[in-house]
Nucleic acid binder design. Sequence first.
DNA 1: CAGTGAGCGAGCTTCCGCTTGACTT
Length: 814
Amino acid sequence: MGKKTTVKEGNLVIVESPAKAKTIEKFLGKDYVVKSSYGHIRDLSKSDFGVDLKNNYQPDYIVSNDKKEVVKELKDLAAKSETVWLASDEDREGEAIAWHLYEVLGLKDDNTKRIVFHEITKEAIQKAVKNPRGIDFNLVNAQQARRVLDRLVGFELSPVLWRKVKPSLSAGRVQSVAVRLLVDREREIFNFKPVSSYRVTALFEVKDDKGKVTQLKAELNKRFKTLEETQAFLQECADAQFKVSKVEKKPLKKSPAAPFTTSTLQQEASRKLGFSVSQTMSVAQKLYEAGKITYMRTDSVNLSELALNMASSMISDKMGDQYVQIRNYKTKAKGAQEAHEAIRPTYLDKETVSGTNQEKKLYELIWKRTIASQMADAQLEKTVISIDAGSTGEKFVATGEIIKFDGFLKVYIESTDTEGEQEDDKDVLLPPMSEGDILGMLNVEARQRWSQKPPRFTEASLVRKLEELGIGRPSTYAPTISTIQNRGYVEKEDREGTERVYKYLHVTSGAKVEVSDKTEITGAERAKLFPTDIGMVVNDFLVKYFENIVSFDFTAQVEKEFDEIAMGNVTWNKSIDEFYKPFHDKVEETLETSEKSTGERILGEDPATGKPVLVRIGRFGPMAQIGESSEESEEKPKFASLRKGQHIETITLEEALDLFKLPRTLGEFEDKVVVIGIGRFGPYIRHDGKFVSLKKGEDDPMEIDLDTAILRIKTKREEDAKKMIKVFDEEPDLQVLNGRWGPYIKYQKKNYKIPKDKVAEELSYDDCKQLIADQDKGGGKKTTAKKKTTTKKTTAKKTTTKKATATKKKTTKK
DNA sequence: CAGTGAGCGAGCTTCCGCTTGACTT
């Protein structure tokens, strides 16, 4: 063998994910090198849409900087290999990845093979290798159409928003519909008028054969509309005879839920473990990389043959044969592409794993759900007992369920989103009773209840809705939720409930009905998604001018078109052209004719000046304004920002006028004025150039008096004194302080860490200077490194710092 | 922990889907 002749030998297999590559390499043996493309290797350039509008929408693809290294490695390996196997996923995106690889790596037909498998088992992979095919260009074109359409929609609509609403905003096929769902729901809630009715329950005494007494709770089978009716009925009950009129027993069966997909995992992890969707994904990623679960971005509910066998033997060993029931689940999700298995443990005999608490919990959830999905139905018996209430003609009903055979319930019960206003009557064993039995009444009570407003979305329930509409993909649910929050369209928040008074009626046998007022907390929300004013204005704008794009079935419609392209019935650029021409005209028309959209609402007149009071979106967010700026009058309008929790759509004239009462001067303390105001971080006291926050829940900025304010200033001073560990005479700007995360050094407005082996109190001036120099040097290196990298990276950096400050705010709020 | 506003000058922002890391607090 001469040195310069390149001998091509061996096989290069390219998959999308590096963890997958590792597993597959084991199955294929020595002759195969398995590498990963890390997803797509190139994308549309960002200049001029990345699409040539004059040349049949020709895409301009470029390999981004962070992919250059991967591409180079793959190119080198491909050149040396005898055969290159493109093993990206078996779906539209996967096919496109294969094609991009083919193009960018300069592959040739005669030594390139396209293979697919949708489960990572030895059999599946060997079978795939035996059945190679070529690249499916129809499918690739369907992906190009998808990509180009999303680019055109996003990059044409967003600039319209910059001009007509506010800079830096965004719109897109997926995110804009997500926001619309939230805005629509918020308005439904706003317009919702709760209706009250009275729910009546009774407590009876039941004696069994042996004379043992048990209690039985039953609910009246109707609700009364008015207090009078309810009171009259309860009074009748006081002297009524209660007789069992019917005892009905019905068998009932419950079936397990399908194995996890990305979306159902996100929902259950949210309900059962309180995880956010991004949390779920990053914990799942860890489990996947450690080889503990299968791939976590999937829309498939299928389990491999191998997994089914494992489940079957696991269940029969552990619980017995009668618990095994192997099932095939069908996906219900619109547009599912099912390139992978469902999410399941790699080894079903492992009930738990090592790792962080979160990893353990999520793994256990996946294990239980997977096992339960292959278990027998639960057999239950439902008992319904009807009890006549004297001669009133009304019936009380008691229901109970007993489990005859637990089946899958032994390991897993699916949660629901319904929040528990209704008490749980289930799993109640009813005392034995027969028709004609007379029951002793202990008491009858009634309480006023209100119909429930539609529920606000959580991250997870929004994902479920999007999936239902076929909008977005498993890999984008979590990022979409982040995007709409980062753009300021949506906020995830807790809301405290408000007190509500309800009527409570109570009567015992033979007595007189007592009526009283009780209070309950209602409307409390935890980690719910609230649309912001900007979100609402942007949504209204898009609905008004681009209804078809933000309609709930836009994605479904274009998916149909993509399917046609994938089947070879339609040419992709032609299809894009049919969409783009009218769309672009509409964009042009909107730019020319539409007014700037600020969500302006006139609330009324300012009683002091008679000028109009209005609210709208300003350059810095939602604001209130008294008077209009006009050319005739020199007088400028007055401005005030809306406060947290206030919204353009719901704020009243009174609330808006209150905003202008601040800042207000309380008086003087130590010869300096004391001023109350409201800033970005809530209400504050300003005195002698310093700021002190008001006490939450105790101080009202409109009410607080000078004495209380002075008290707050003094306590703040004490706290500050405690905070200070050391100051140096050499430089008063250099301080050692006690912060929330322990001691730190502050110098020229920057903070520096103190290494764990140093004691804060013992640091000398020189020690501090040294630490600052060290850390500045480290930081300096980093910043120069960052400057060298691409613009893409710096923007990514920006968003992460934004996120960091956002979480900061939240923690201080607590 | 620190921080507590605000109208013409320049250029930027933006999409959806595949994939992982690299960043702090």
